[in-house]
Simulated scan of single mutants.
Amino acid sequence: MTAPYRCPNCKTNKSRFNLIQQIPQSVKLDPQTGNVVEEYSQEQLSPFHRGYQGPKYRVQCGVCGLIEDEKTYIKFGEKA
């Protein structure tokens, strides 16, 4: 968050945003019930479980409600 943002949807909002911190939780679910069978730490994932590689933050426009990756808001902030 060291760059100006601008909403790519409403194109006017440059100041009101909700930052959504994404905290991944790696789990193994029972296929029949959906209950959590096992919970993994990022350091102890099983060989068949890929760790989360998505963005750390998502951003929601405080005016129109659009939720996008932070990079999208930064790119639009550079244009104006």
Rank of each mutant, 00 (worst) to 15 (best):
P4D: 12
Q53V: 04
V59C: 06
G65A: 09
N13Y: 05
C64Q: 09
H49R: 13
I74C: 02
N13L: 09
D30I: 09
Q60A: 15
R16G: 01
R50D: 08
N35Q: 14
Q32L: 12
H49D: 12
R50W: 07
D69S: 12
G54Y: 12
H49C: 12
G34K: 05
P4F: 06
K56I: 11
V36L: 04
G62D: 06
N9D: 02
P31L: 12
I74H: 06
R50A: 05
R50P: 01
R58D: 01
Q44I: 06
V36K: 11
Q25G: 07
M1P: 01
L66A: 10
N9E: 07
R16D: 11
Y73R: 02
Y52I: 09
L45Q: 07
R50M: 09
I20D: 04
P24E: 04
R6G: 05
R16M: 08
G51H: 05
Y52N: 08
Y52H: 11
K56T: 11
Q22A: 09
P31A: 08
T72K: 14
F76G: 01
G65S: 03
R16V: 14
T2N: 08
A3V: 04
E39Q: 15
Y5I: 05
E38L: 10
V37K: 15
Y52Q: 02
A3C: 08
E68A: 14
R50S: 06
L19D: 02
R16N: 13
L29N: 10
T33Q: 11
P8R: 06
D69R: 05
G77K: 08
N9W: 09
S15I: 00
N18P: 00
V37R: 14
Y73K: 00
N9T: 06
